[in-house]
Amino acid sequence: MAEIQVMKNILGENDRIAAENQAMFAAKGVYVVNLMGSPGAGKTSVLEKTMEKLKDELKMAVIEGDLFTSKDADRIERHGVPVIQINTAGGCHLDAPMVQKVAQQMDLDNLDLLIVENVGNLVCPAEFAVGEDDKAVVLSITEGDDKPLKYPLIFKESAIAMLNKVDILPYCNFNMESAKEDITTLHPGMKVLEISCTTGQGIDEWCDWLKKKVAEKKNG
């Protein structure tokens, strides 16, 4: 019998830290969503509508990810919800270490729902877990109905897709049927909502989904 010294990490660095984050959020009973989408898809607008509806019902906090500026965090702050801005200064996605550093300094004991708004990008964020329970993707109809098939990973990885800006559907070339069909081809059974942050369409459904998830997380 011989002993071989190994001392090797079992998981890649980001996955290991994402797992730590998951354990931390689970211990504190916080439900975490990783919100993704292209620049301009409407992620921050969705957050604003969410806060209007839910901030009196649920204890919420937001972690904002952008390359530069605190513009999004400022918008969130105006709603009176605790928010921390992460500036990646060039990085195209948030990663687990970034979120861990920030989350460790938040009051997680008094939190029901944490939404991490990722950097605007349909490619890289899907590859990097940050410790979330679920990923959510926002696609605005102005981006084109061909996007799901072009960016399959983000749709496969997300638990819910929100097709935003449907109030201007009459002015766009977006084929709603085929976009939804493509999304469900990539991810059978995925929840897809038509929403508009301008008119408020679909926001109730999204908020109900969130509330249900928060309740499920609290009940372990």
Binding site: G12, G91, C92, H93, V123, C124, E127, F128
Partner: peptide
């Protein structure tokens, strides 16, 4: 995965 920025697994 991301050839542009080099992020993600090769």
């Amino acid at each position: 995965m991301c050839k542009e920025c080099g992020c993600g697994e090769t």
